[in-house]
């Protein structure tokens, strides 16, 4: 059997559309997910509370069930109950909740490594609780766990291939679409897999670029 990649050329438009969707979806759920994670980690690192327990439940349920089941539940389960959300929004929600749960745990480990004395020092300098939290706890914790966070975001991007199953026009949807038209599944999947690989490498570089700038102040002390 001869592989023929030229049959993909007429479908370049679909590939581009899928690529853009995957990138945009990943970008916004990364931002939202990291925001959610900061919030959850903030609540859970404080005194034990009902809210903290509930957020703990959310983290455990998300981490211990498959992404595809969460997606089906949000898309079909909730809409059957009358909470109708679009496929794109369900995908965004599932990705955000996932990244949020995993990053919250990573972040919590980073926060727990914070020197409590520094926090007290910051309060003594007259910073508010939120201010000192931001400067003494959150930002250094982010810097400490930045590599782990980078990997987690890439895992969520790669996992997003599953959103094709609820009709979101992402890169995998494009691959399946082309496969159903030209019946050249193997070629399509190989090429799309390569695109995902490049996307993962690109994300790692982009995170590295942002990290070097955002946490520049730590470089001198650490290296």
């Amino acid at each position: 059997m001869e592989l023929d990649f030229s049959t993909l050329v007429p479908y370049a438009g679909e590939l581009v559309q899928g690529f853009v969707t995957t990138v945009v979806l990943t970008a916004i759920s990364t931002l939202a997910g990291l925001g959610l994670a900061s919030l959850v980690a903030y609540v859970r690192s404080g005194k034990a509370s009902l809210l903290g327990r509930m957020l703990g439940g959310y983290v455990e349920v998300t981490r211990n069930t498959p992404f595809i089941v969460q997606l089906f539940f949000l898309f079909f389960g909730l809409s059957a109950l009358g909470f109708k959300i679009s496929a794109l929004f369900a995908a965004f929600l599932a990705m955000t909740l996932n990244l949020g749960a995993y990053s919250a745990e990573i972040l919590r480990a980073g926060i727990e490594a914070t020197d409590r004395g520094q926090l007290e020092a910051a309060r003594a300098l007259g910073m508010s609780r939120l201010q000192s939290y931001r400067h003494v706890v959150l930002i250094p914790a982010f810097a400490r766990i930045y590599p782990a966070l980078t990997s987690q975001c890439i895992i969520v991007m790669l996992g997003s291939a599953v959103v094709s199953q609820i009709s979101v026009f992402d890169l995998t949807y494009a691959a399946n679409f082309i496969q159903s038209r030209n019946f050249r599944g193997f070629e399509v999947y190989l090429v799309v897999t390569l695109i995902y690989l490049l996307l993962a490498v690109g994300m790692r570089q982009a995170f590295g670029f942002v990290g070097r700038r955002a946490f520049a102040f730590r470089q001198g002390g650490n290296a």
Partner: peptide
């Protein structure tokens, strides 16, 4: 680690057969 598990599954299932 840099490619989706879903794609790896598609390739293993339909790709392996294409390879004989």
């Amino acid at each position: 680690q840099g490619t989706p598990l879903l794609m790896q599954l598609f390739l293993a299932f339909f790709g392996a057969a294409a390879l004989g």
